[in-house]
Write a protein that binds this DNA or RNA. Structure first.
Length: 765
RNA sequence: GGCCGCUUAGCUCAGUUGGUAGAGCGUCGCAUUCACAUUGCGAAUGUCACAGGUUCAAGUCCUGUAGCGGCCACCA
């Protein structure tokens, strides 16, 4: 005697169902061998923590797309992965070390790398379990990690290709330096804050200059004025004394100087200010650095500072030095504008003020043609304009275009250990900068990372290119490797093709370009833009045909979720409490594409109620059709062998109306899903199932099950119930995979023609 | 400074090619051993920010105004 539970109990089903699906191979594209390829590369979550509610959004949306495609008979591949996440992870790990009273600067490079390797592997494992809990139907056998040796090999090949093409180059430039993390950052990783600081007016002999940063004056190499500024005409070409030092600096003329700002004269510090750097380049000025890696005054001897100044200021942090310099200058400070409002660049992770420092680093040229004729930014703009890459919410296309049109060269060197080591070597003898002849194929150097053996190649994993035998310029073997690692986005920018080229031999051929890239709009520039540029550059094809961007998750008061505000919803926690289906549905319901996702526990509870509604309405159908006992839930023995209606059979008007409405629902839902309108499709199904199928139709059937004795009508009504229910379940399945499958299995008891799993059912036509 | 978006029921938001305003949560009344109280039935609440315009018809298209939010930008 089989019974059916009175309520939907997700905890009783979810884990088992997921395991069954995975074991049956349903997550693999091979379940639909002849199907049209459909592919999504999962944005690999950072392996430095656990999944948060934002991850649940992408899992839900991508799983909806994949399950829908699979039900439509496509060979649907969802390729999972995890990201080592370079700097991000190192920041997390450094915090962890700090709590233990340690500093990363005390730990040898290889040892630190090893520690972080273990750290990310642990996180990765936990994240995989969490993705499964959320019902992600991705192909785990194709899972990739951004530090897999075969991925590193591809990243090296790309770098080499860019280098040979003249698009990856090493240059001595001003970079964004975080003095806390002691690494450079890309322009995107610098945030700007409005601040009020004093603006000092300082007398340099006959000229007064205005500055917010008097402490950089030791690096001054000139005074610049606008060539059209009558007031300074006579001074151009003359020299003025640099206070607190024993040297003079020239007065030069440059168009970049705004006559109306301050006194119309600027101190020029090429080593510590981007505009000044450019002025310096134009006039061939010395780059005199007086701030070190830790953001402290240094090199004051070379700057010819007076001895007592060197004594007093060397090693002082810039903020502290600022006040001290003002003090030393004394009456040379003509006046101070105390509350000058300006924006200051800070590190996006630690809010330390960014110091522009001159450093030798690797850059990617984005606006200039390579020898190949390719221009990264321009080519990327073109494919978007052509519609070869379509943004699902059109407005992001404008944002993308605007950014891409104003993009500047990209600094990819990071002075950290966690990441892919830049495979470049420098000759010690011929002082010739670069001797980078990268042999990437055998990316192996014994003992670099002790004890770390690749599962794939069986060789030790390293993050360095193989050392070239000799310098191509002078022939010596005295080569040293670049100590830096790549910006993590340089490797993740290659993710779609790199991942597909390293899973199965035919995957790239079959699944690239991928169908959809679904991710958060906050990484539109960081990631999506770079994927388009690099994907196009390396493969000559776009990496994806559609970009679907989702927003930020906020609470019901529109507040961003954060640990400090205490409004964080842990997706796994609420999934445990209300069921995964409820969480998933709550994350798409009422959310327009690209908009922020507003979530609250009440909303999740509402969707839990819906899951229960599905369960109970189905329970009713199963008990009715099988002639079971509605009260106890004991399923009867009657079965429906096929769902075709009896020839010439009679239908009640209610049946007929129901079947008609169901037909239009199918059309509508299919259209909405194909159009990426997940929210509308979900709402439609919700409304239909609850307020039409359950509230109206089922209620109507009660009447004629009780009152009519016509067997043919009864039979047709049963068939209509099962047909409408089973097809609606299939349509709901992408949204709520667990309850729909659980019900499907019960339904098979009374309708044996249904396929063994709803996952491999056919999308209703 | 440039660009983008938002303004619809008490709250949070949908609204698909312009065709008599919707959902979730909440509120009020009634029902209750009949699939489901994780329920059913019924009810209330909106000059769709404001001002113009196009149209037979505008929440939906155009122009302007106000408020809010976001992104980008090297102002010493």
């Amino acid at each position: 005697m089989k019974t059916i539970d009175k309520a939907w109990q997700p905890e009783k089903f979810e884990e088992n169902l997921y395991q069954r699906w995975e074991k049956a191979g349903y997550f693999k594209p091979e379940v639909n061998p002849g199907g049209e390829p459909f592919s999504i590369i999962m944005p690999p979550p950072n392996a430095n923590g656990s999944l948060h509610i934002g991850h649940a959004v992408f899992v839900t949306l991508e799983d909806i797309m994949i399950r829908y495609a699979r039900l439509k008979g496509k060979a649907a591949l969802w390729l999972p992965g995890a990201d080592h996440a370079g700097f991000e992870t190192q920041v997390v790990f450094e915090k962890k070390l700090e709590k233990e009273g340690k500093s990363r600067f005390q730990i040898p490079r290889d040892e630190l790398y090893q520690m972080m390797w273990d750290f990310t592997q642990e996180n990765k494992k936990a994240m995989e379990a969490q993705l499964k809990k959320l019902g992600a139907s991705c192909d785990w056998q194709r899972e990739k990690f951004t530090l897999d040796p075969d991925i590193i090999k591809i990243v090296y090949e790309t770098f080499k290709k860019l280098y040979d093409d003249g698009l990856a180059y090493r240059a001595f430039r001003l970079v964004n330096w975080c003095p806390k993390h002691q690494t450079s950052l890309s322009d995107l990783e610098v945030k700007y804050e409005e601040r009020q600081d004093p603006l000092y007016y300082i007398k340099y002999g006959p000229i007064t200059v205005a500055t917010t940063r008097p402490e950089t004056m030791f690096g001054d190499v000139a005074i610049a004025v606008n060539p059209n500024d009558e007031g300074y005409k006579d001074l151009i070409g003359k020299s003025v004394p640099l206070p607190l030092t024993d040297r003079d600096i020239p007065v030069i003329a440059d168009e970049a100087v705004d006559m109306k700002f301050g006194t119309g004269a600027v101190k020029v510090t090429p080593a510590h200010d981007p505009t000044d750097f450019e002025i310096g380049q134009r006039h061939g000025l010395e780059i005199l650095a007086v701030i070190d890696d830790r953001g402290r005054l240094a090199n004051l001897e070379q700057a010819k500072a007076k001895p007592q100044i060197i004594e007093r200021l060397s090693g002082k942090r810039t903020a502290e030095a600022r006040a001290l310099v003002a003090e030393e200058l004394d009456e040379l400070v003509e006046k101070r504008n105390e509350n000058y409002l300006h924006s200051v660049g800070v590190c996006y992770k630690c809010q330390s003020v960014i110091e522009p420092l001159p450093r030798e680093q690797w850059f990617i040229a984005v606006n200039k043609p390579g020898k190949s004729g390719k221009i990264l930014a321009k080519d990327a703009l073109k494919v978007v304009k052509d519609g070869r890459v379509k943004f699902v919410t059109k407005r992001f296309e404008k944002i993308f275009t605007h950014w891409m049109e104003n993009i500047r060269d990209w600094n990819i060197s990071r002075q950290i250990v966690w990441g892919i080591r830049i495979p470049a070597w420098y000759c010690q003898n011929c002082s010739n900068e670069v001797a980078t002849d990268i042999t990437y194929g055998a990316a192996v150097k014994e003992g670099t990372i002790p004890g770390r053996i690749s599962k794939i190649s069986g060789k030790p994993i390293v993050t360095e290119g193989e050392k070239p035998e000799k310098c191509p310029d002078c022939g010596c073997a005295d080569l040293v490797s670049d100590p830096d690692v790549f910006d993590t986005w340089f490797s993740s920018g290659q993710w779609p093709f790199a991942a597909l080229q390293t899973t199965k031999p035919s995957d790239f051929e079959k699944f690239y370009p991928t169908s959809v890239m679904e991710t958060g709009w906050d990484i539109l520039f960081f990631w999506v833009a770079r994927m388009i540029m690099l994907g196009l550059y390396v493969t000559d094809k776009v990496p994806f045909k559609h970009v679907f961007l989702h927003g930020l998750v906020r609470d019901k008061d529109r507040q961003k979720m954060s640990k400090s505000k205490g409004n964080v919803i842990n997706p796994l926690g609420v999934a445990e409490q209300y069921g995964t289906d409820a969480v998933r549905m709550a994350l798409v319901f009422g959310v327009a594409a690209g908009n922020d996702v507003i979530i609250s526990e009440e909303k999740i509870r509402g969707m839990r109620n819906f899951a229960n509604k599905i369960w109970n309405a189905s329970r009713y159908v199963i008990l009715r059709v099988s002639e079971g006992d509605l009260k106890t839930g004991v399923i009867g023995t009657d079965k429906l062998s096929d769902l075709d209606f009896i020839e010439g059979g009679k239908h009640t008007v209610e049946n007929q109306r129901m079947l008609n409405e169901h037909e239009s629902l199918k059309k509508e839902t299919t259209r909405l899903l194909s159009d990426f309108k997940f929210s509308l499709a979900g709402e439609k199904l919700y409304d239909y199932f609850w307020h039409t199928f359950a509230d109206i139709y089922i209620e109507e059937t009660k009447i004629y099950f009780d009152k009519h004795s016509d067997e043919q009508i009864k039979k047709n009504t049963k068939k209509a119930l099962v047909k409408v229910l089973s097809e609606t379940l299939i349509m709901l399945h992408p949204f709520m995979p667990f309850v729909t499958e659980a019900v499907w299995q019960e339904l098979r008891e009374i309708s044996p023609d249904l396929v063994e799993s709803i996952m491999i059912a056919e999308w209703p036509k």
